[in-house]
Design a protein around this nucleic acid. Structure first.
Lengths: 214, 214
DNA sequence: CGTGCAGTTGAGCAAATTCAACGCTTGTGG
DNA sequence: CCACAAGCGTTGAATTTGCTCAACTGCACG
């Protein structure tokens, strides 16, 4: 296919969902790189991120790791599981996570249609996110990174800079690029003043939208 | 990242779901390339494929079309929608489709937990499919096509050949490749006897699994 | 003060794209 | 019935993109 270099960013409006009822659950802390659940395990919980960042990932037969998605505060992890997890999850940075029992959730759904609607909706959002991610993977390297940064920025609306709660390796494995390419694109964007690196983990995006259109 | 050229196929066991209750709905016929629904429209139905093949797709700002997924008999189209469709759908070949009213479905779900479970499950399967598709997009061109062919073969288990109910352009837009590359890979696979083209739309896959491991 | 991890940069290379031309099939109208 | 156009598919040559391999820097932590 064509690295869709000229394609503008499509704002996906992947809003977080505000629910009107209580799902209960207990909060647990995880340190950087700590395992939350593993592929194959029985899926007992849904996990709501309170703070920090979670990555879900799988390891390919060639040993390469592939990151399915980063989950930020208010995101729900584990919707892709039916009986068992099909993917693993770890914290990319120190994180607090609310563990919600799936069984309790299902019985609550049996009594309250709002819960059904809620579950359907957040799963549909998860699905839309996956589709958006597929779309990103069709683009060229620079656009992947721009889209990624803008997606992060969407989460912290009124900030002009974003924190990257993950390493370059994580970003590479999420975007399907080599770390070298990720690094080079950052440098290139810096060169065109599209971004500026306050630190290697905090990036000012003031001029990025303009650059992404050019 | 690396086109994961050495990576073996991961059998995804994306089984179709057998439900034990009746969702009703009426069957409608669509001819090749006929529109089923468009992005932005209100999502009134879920669509169950009875025969033929449906593609869901979106058009990028650069005009290029991008196919999200092909739906074959027993697949359900439209699970990614909440209020409105976020994607368009067309028949890639003459198809029969069962239209299931979403509103009726929700009220049925309110009375029957099995329906809730069913909806959650088919949506989770849809999500797993999307993740599998993402994974395919990380691989090299030949592996994408091999995976695609094997995925089709999964649907017609006891056949040694599969029909392609879509054009090369469709395949290219689904796999994120150019049509030329798709064509070349077919030729290459033919050259190594991994496949043989009975017609350009019907392919014998007898030797493909072996080839995909090599 | 070394060791390891994260990140950056450079040179050569492999893969897939683009541009372009051409063959085959199918359907349509004279 | 034939001729021609249109769509689908294939093939070739040049180019671009991003990967691999490799070296090197800065930083944090023991």
């Amino acid at each position: 296919m064509s690295p869709v270099a000229t394609c503008r960013h499509q704002s996906p409006t992947l809003t977080s969902y505000r629910r009107s009822f209580d799902l209960g659950g207990i909060i647990t802390s995880f340190s950087r790189n700590e395992k939350i659940f593993s592929k194959g395990e029985q899926a007992k919980y849904l996990y709501e991120v309170e703070s920090g960042c979670i990555r879900t990932f799988d390891t390919l037969n060639n040993g390469r790791r592939w990151i399915s998605r980063f989950y930020l505060p208010n995101d729900i992890v584990g919707l892709d599981a039916r009986e068992n997890h099909v993917i693993s999850a770890e914290a990319t940075s120190p994180s607090k996570v609310r563990l919600i029992e799936r069984a309790a959730l299902m019985s609550q759904a049996a009594r309250n249609v709002d819960v059904v609607k809620y579950l359907m909706d957040i799963t549909a959002i998860e699905l839309q996110h996956a589709q958006n991610h597929k779309l990103i993977l069709l683009k060229g390297a620079q656009e992947r990174i721009v889209d990624f940064l803008l997606e992060l920025k969407n989460r912290e609306q009124n900030e002009t800079a974003v924190d990257l709660p993950m390493t370059r390796v994580d970003i590479a494995d999420y975007l399907g690029l080599s770390i070298e390419t990720v690094s080079r694109i950052f440098t290139r964007l810096k060169g065109t003043s599209a971004i500026s690196l306050l630190t290697s983990r905090r990036i000012d995006l003031r001029n990025l939208p303009r650059a992404s259109i050019a």
